[in-house]
Amino acid sequence: MLTFIGLGLFDEKDISLKGLEAIKNADMVFAEFYTSRLMGSSLEELESLYGKKVNLLLREDVEISPDWLAEAKDKNVAFLTGGDTMVSTTHVDLRLRAKNLGIETKLIHGSSIASAICGLSCLQNYRFGKASTIPHPYTSSRGVTVISETPYDTIKLNKEHNMHTLVFLDIDKDKGYMTVNQALSLLLQVEEKRGEGIMENAIVVGIARAGSEAPVVKAGYAHDLKDEDFGEPLHILVIPASLHFIEAEALVGLLGAPSEILEGLDD
């Protein structure tokens, strides 16, 4: 049996009772923290809570050579991820591999940034369109710095359909955790290049350390929030479309957005 367990948003206390019980009953425990990680906990703190050794997997151990899967043929194996399990395509692929090996699988869900973002940003959950990820820029073979324009296109498409955009920020083992500031700077650079007005007067919401005791959540114009201090990772960004009056009032009253965004809104 292979049990996929989502650990929640921030620290070791976010796990469900069902998930904790499954880990304690497991013969072996594996985890990957390259798609997401619990910034409020260390591996040692997790092991202390579980009373079990946690075998930390690298990307290649999950995506290329998951030889450890064979352990689940005759043992109870727990596979841990940050957030909610199965949100990443990588985990779906792993479940398919397990099925092809004749291994039974089970899912135990955890709190996810995909749902938490709605409460933190005060934006209505059914108004979110396609999500996107802003990757770190890279240097081409010709020595040119390349900034991906795909996130900009996703935001543009969602705005055309009056949908909000959830923007994940890159986690890179060499370049580190992308910040809201870096993400907005990249989007504004694409805006300057293309001049399409998507980000020029855009209200955005920046969020840091969702699930912690003191998350930072700020709303404002992109060019203003670019210089705000959001503190330690993980960060995430939301680009709203047009605002319902309740959304706008919440952004102003709770998240510090400029009151002028309330002008001209219908009740």
Rank of each mutant, 00 (worst) to 15 (best):
L2C: 08
G6Q: 02
E12R: 10
I15Q: 01
L17P: 03
K18S: 13
G19F: 05
A22Y: 04
D27K: 07
M28D: 06
V29I: 10
F30H: 11
F33R: 09
M39H: 09
S48K: 13
S48A: 14
Y50I: 15
N55H: 12
R59T: 11
V62K: 07
S65Y: 11
P66W: 10
E71P: 12
F79I: 04
L80H: 10
D84F: 06
T85I: 15
V87N: 12
T89R: 08
T89M: 09
L94T: 10
L96I: 12
R97E: 14
N100F: 13
E104D: 07
T105F: 14
H109G: 14
G110Q: 15
S111R: 15
A114W: 13
S115A: 09
A116F: 07
L120W: 04
C122T: 11
N125P: 04
N125S: 12
F128A: 03
A131P: 06
T133K: 02
P135C: 05
P137S: 05
Y138N: 11
S141Q: 15
Y152W: 02
I155L: 03
E160R: 00
E160S: 02
V167N: 00
Y177N: 07
V180H: 05
N181V: 02
A183C: 00
L187T: 03
V190P: 03
E191G: 03
K193F: 02
R194F: 02
M199H: 00
M199Q: 02
N201C: 05
N201E: 13
I207R: 04
R209M: 06
R209D: 03
G211C: 10
V217M: 06
V217D: 06
V217Q: 08
K218P: 07
D227F: 14
E228I: 01
E232V: 05
I239Y: 03
I239N: 00
S242A: 08
H244W: 12
E247T: 12
A248L: 10
G253R: 14
S259R: 15
E263H: 14
L265C: 08
D266H: 15
